[in-house]
Design a protein around this nucleic acid. Structure first.
Lengths: 352, 352
DNA sequence: GCGTGTTACTAACACGCGTTACTAAAACTC
DNA sequence: GAGTTTTAGTAACGCGTGTTAGTAACACGC
């Protein structure tokens, strides 16, 4: 580095005041009367020297890092597969930057290595934590909660009493399946987005059951399959359903990515969608509209999810009282051709 | 927080030594002989108290943060659209964690606001910087280079002499287009992934031209269109090409996402792929294999890209000499049905 | 017994900031 | 004009580390 580090001492010297005054002026400390003249002198000097307070020194003195971490508590597969996650991250960043916070990214794959993100807390590297895809077998999380460390979940964990932001997965699935019921289907299959250990996956499964129940349809285990985030799993699951002696006439697939694989299997067998098999997906990934046929699906407020999570976390950090411990965001059923009774492609407004 | 912060002072007291000794032992300082007995006493005490050195204090003393930042120098659209980016990030995280570094995420949309990431440097929040999608009109980057601040580009910037890791976009595009030539096409269109201001986009465009030249085919501006990362732009571009009196018989589309939009336009007009129009994409997004028809495309070593970038950056930070200022990683042409002469879908091995 | 190393540690300072307690000067009160 | 309050600013400490300079204690050679 050619340029030496500029310290508040340099600013003080240039402005002809003490270092204390510099700090008071630059931090806008209330209940401190300082002449407009010296105030300006300090500001000018700071600007001229391009002074920026050293982050480490400031953290050490204030006990605040102005940094939050996003912990991705999930497998590598999921990180790749989830296009939706990038939108969430965008939302997080937006809020974080706006409120003057940094965002640290900490994915980890090994479930046993939850120690890893704890070190962020123990070393005082962060002020708060957002945990995406929490597992119920994580023992560190409740401890953090006890210690009063600010944590917000993206997703839910039953009974832990930790703040969270989530989507109403069950309600969304309910709506998707009900749509198929309305269209006259009586035998509706299910391919989940992931194993049921993932709470979101279980919730969508529950919504599927509830919709069947409300319609007076039986829950039939034989037309239920379990995906694992990836298209490949949808391809295989659909092949299995098609091999049944009595395949469903419609399938709710709780992930667009997985649904894409299923569509490929259907095309291969020459089965038309929606006539031979109606499909409703989940997530509304950007490509959903451009698949063949365009996919009816549930649109998630991914960006808002990130926005609210970051907002809530920073509120907690700054000691503001939070009204509700959790927030459930609404979803939207986007109707396209894959379930029948669609609107033509051209009409849909482009936005995301 | 229920638990009070544990400091090295506490450890020293419990072990019955001075704070200095604690520091020497825990940091494994060489040329310092310390009795095995006291060494163990210190280690035990540290473990028993769950001592972790405070990150801020350590940074202040050592002038090192053990943190690197990923700056995403690109529009919001791109962040959403680029599934490929999540793989890169995975690679980055992998290396960073392994070598004991943190990863800070800093996307920004406004090109004018390059000041934003500079503050990370001025505040000494990071030891190094990875810049994805650099723009030639960024004036801050050369300054950093002059100051000797560690920077690695994901992508290239001509003449700046900054370390970089990239893919050989031109060569990849060349290979893709040559394939179409081999298949007998004489009129091959181009839809770019993005405007030509993006260096990667320009390189792919150049590869397209070179392949035509080598084949003795003319470059015809009228069958070239410019995408903008999104599927929508591909949809529209393909519509325009199809409206020509003499449309191409094949099109190289420099982004799978954009290609997906183009495929939708083709389906709508009932044009079969590859018979009515052959398509080669770029990126090999996870869904490429499951589109209709499965997409012939260029596979990028996204994960490796992130891996190498992080590795190179940390090498630089730690003062190791770097042999080459830049690394170009190889790509792979993945042949599927969308260009003709495919292998059947089932055979392809699943991996990513 | 005196100088010279060597061993095994420690006292004290620096890093750059925020902040509390204090002061000298000016302004008011009566 | 002596006492009291207000104003405008500063000296000095603490945050928790890493690190340099230094020091007792002891062994050794002659």
């Amino acid at each position: 580095m050619a340029r030496k580090k500029v310290t508040s001492h340099d600013v003080a010297k240039l402005a002809g005041v003490s270092r204390t005054t510099v700090s008071l002026v630059l931090n806008d400390v209330p209940h401190t009367r300082i002449t407009e003249g010296t105030r300006q002198r300090v500001l000018d000097a700071a600007k001229r020297l391009r002074y920026r307070p050293d982050a480490a020194a400031r953290s050490l003195a204030t006990k605040q890092t102005r940094t939050i971490a996003l912990v991705l508590y999930q497998s590598a597969d999921r990180i790749v597969g989830d296009a939706f996650l990038t939108s969430v991250v965008r939302g997080l960043c937006e809020v974080a930057q706006q409120r003057g916070f940094r965002l640290l990214l900490h994915p980890f794959e090994d479930v046993g290595k939850s120690e890893a993100y704890i070190s962020l807390v123990l070393e005082n590297s962060i002020d708060g934590l957002i945990v995406s895809g929490p597992r119920s077998d994580d023992e560190q999380l409740p401890k953090l909660r006890e210690d009063g460390f600010p944590v917000v979940l993206l997703g839910q964990l039953n009974g832990a009493g930790i703040h969270f932001v989530d989507v109403d997965n069950a309600a969304a699935a309910f709506r998707a399946v009900s749509r198929l019921v309305q269209l006259g289907h009586r035998r509706i299959g299910l391919i989940t987005n992931a194993p049921l250990e993932y709470t979101a996956s279980a919730a969508r499964w529950r919504g599927y059951q509830e919709a069947l129940e409300e319609a007076g349809l039986p829950y039939d285990e034989s037309i239920v399959r379990y995906g694992n985030f990836r298209a490949q799993s949808g391809y295989q699951a659909m092949e299995e359903l098609l091999a049944l002696t009595e395949p469903p006439t419609a399938t709710f697939i709780a992930s667009d990515e997985v649904a894409t694989g299923a569509l490929a299997a259907l095309h291969e067998r020459g089965i038309s969608v929606p006539d031979g098999m109606a499909i409703v997906g989940f997530d509304d990934i950007p490509l959903a509209r451009y698949l063949t046929p365009p996919l009816t699906t549930i649109r998630l407020p991914a960006y808002d999810l990130g926005l609210q999570a970051a907002d809530m976390l920073i509120d907690i950090i700054q000691g503001e009282e939070i009204a509700e411990t959790g927030v459930l965001l609404d979803t939207e059923l986007i109707i396209r051709e894959s379930c029948g009774e669609c609107e033509p492609l051209g009409k849909e407004v482009e936005n995301h």
